[in-house]
Write a protein that binds this DNA or RNA. Structure first.
Lengths: 283, 283
DNA sequence: GATATCTCTAGGCACATCCTATGGACATCC
DNA sequence: GGATGTCCATAGGATGTGCCTAGAGATATC
């Protein structure tokens, strides 16, 4: 057991998916696979149930996660013990409001770990060095590095009658109180349907929307990553396939800070699946 | 930075000596050397001042040690999280009373780490599977695996006039109140000289002896390892070179428990310096 | 002057890690 | 129903890192 394996473990725990975890760790999927296998052998317990659509943490994994998390944090802190906060470049990153906090913070690790960078996180409409946004929000002069894509799902109160259905159609949602998310980047899309009726509430943030759902006020259509970690909320797929592609956007014209350039390079190397011409390391 | 490097670091910190640390980690000295160098480069600070007779921890090392220690402990705890205490063999180890606790406990790590072993530590006169003793205490039917050898030194109150001397002769100690350690394995030796005069105190344990020294009651002659960690006690070499060889002793006749056999094997592989015929791994 | 101790460097070997490629098992889509 | 996409596991090959031996250099000790 070493810290590297613990990092891989927490990534898998967070993503519930070996392939996705591999991407956030900037390694290939088999590396994650063998690391988890080794860890399970060493601990003498099963950490994840593999099923066809990702993996599910066992009770052991839950238990192990808290201690793994602590060890990693302490190791990171130890590494920074003697680093002076000298000569830091400020990197301003715009985050769209509907991002999954845990996943995003994990993604930004390579930046926060650098002692020469002071990271500033702001809204995505402000003046930024780069933005993490949905592809639909991309401006003309921006490059886009895809990070992940995620579907929209319906979040409903666990006791709601519609939880009995495996999948929700637009017809199902016709006469049901809905919770609007005023900040949603897809609001133009949802707007059409929503305009036909009164919305039950207009949420100012994702947290707020989820709380309203949990309280039984209504149903919300939210990105999968947002609903995933929330308790007291049932999740059902919706029939209309709406997806968003989340990625890093940066202005093509302006020069990129060194730290950000490294970061983008890292992202591109791993995320861009080489289809015909492989762009590997050392290029 | 990985846990392995942290282990090496704590070993060096404890032993104040790369070579000795290498032995307690069961690796060669260059491995330790490069690990420390790497760690220093990564942290951006000097951890040890190298001088010709070992190394001295810097203030950074003091600081880093507490956090390194915690990370290692947590990692060890994590490893044992899911191990049941099932089917443990009890290994009874006799420790002579004058052992340096920190060093000895570190030495026994390979045994305490095993989930199939319950370690019992007792006095070295009781019925044991093996004993950690001075070579002078070896019985006829016992094998001896040397661990380290250490000199006896004089421990004196910091304000004592004799602290002005770099080295103490027997003459210096002739008319000085001495503290006897009744349990000392060398008592036969010291006895001769001590018998000529009244001793200022007879200490029941090393801790007690050191406390008496610190209190200014008198001077004690103790193994180097005992005096090293104690504050308020000055240490001076003595002119007569008395050494003790500490090692693991086990009865040649009785069969050895598996865990103990592994342990002895490990010790022998590393401690026994190959002089002409090297007995390396995989043998 | 011989010996012992302690650290560092050099060169070589072996294992660990990582990669790509591929296969099997399901879902999903047209 | 076949094509496609997703996801995990395995195999085989490249690479890198850790570890070892050997020996040099420096300094105490006998």
């Amino acid at each position: 057991m070493d810290i590297r394996e613990l990092r891989y473990f927490t990534a898998v725990y967070r993503e519930r998916n070996l392939t996705a975890a591999a991407r956030t760790c900037f390694v290939s999927q088999p590396s994650i696979s063998t690391a988890i296998t080794n860890l399970e052998a060493e601990l003498g317990t099963t950490l994840f149930i593999r099923h066809k659509k990702g993996v599910a943490p066992t009770a052991s994994a839950e238990q192990f996660h808290t201690v793994a998390r602590r060890i990693i944090d302490e190791a990171d802190a130890a590494r920074k013990l003697f680093r002076k906060p000298s000569a830091r470049t400020t990197v301003t990153l715009g985050l769209m409001r509907t991002l999954d906090a845990t996943r995003t913070i994990a993604l930004l690790k390579p930046l926060t770990a650098r002692s020469d960078v002071a990271l500033r996180l702001v809204g995505c409409d402000e003046r930024t060095d780069a933005r993490i946004i949905s592809k639909s929000m991309l401006r003309d002069d921006e490059h886009f590095v895809p990070l992940w894509s995620e579907r929209y799902v319906a979040a409903l109160p666990p006791s709601h009658p519609l939880t009995l259905k495996d999948k929700l159609s637009t017809a199902d949602l016709a006469d049901v109180p809905m919770i609007d998310r005023c900040h949603c980047e897809q609001s133009a899309f949802f707007g059409r349907a929503a305009r036909r009726r009164q919305s039950a509430a207009i949420a100012q943030s994702e947290d707020w929307a989820m709380a309203l759902v949990a309280a039984g006020v209504g149903i919300a259509i939210v990105p999968e990553g947002v609903a995933k970690g929330v308790s007291d909320v049932a999740i059902r797929p919706i029939e209309v396939k709406i997806k968003r592609e989340v990625g890093l956007a940066y202005r093509a014209s302006a020069p990129l800070a060194d730290a950000l350039k490294d970061f983008v390079g890292k992202l591109q190397r791993v995320r861009a699946k080489p289809r015909n011409n492989s762009s590997r390391r050392h290029d």
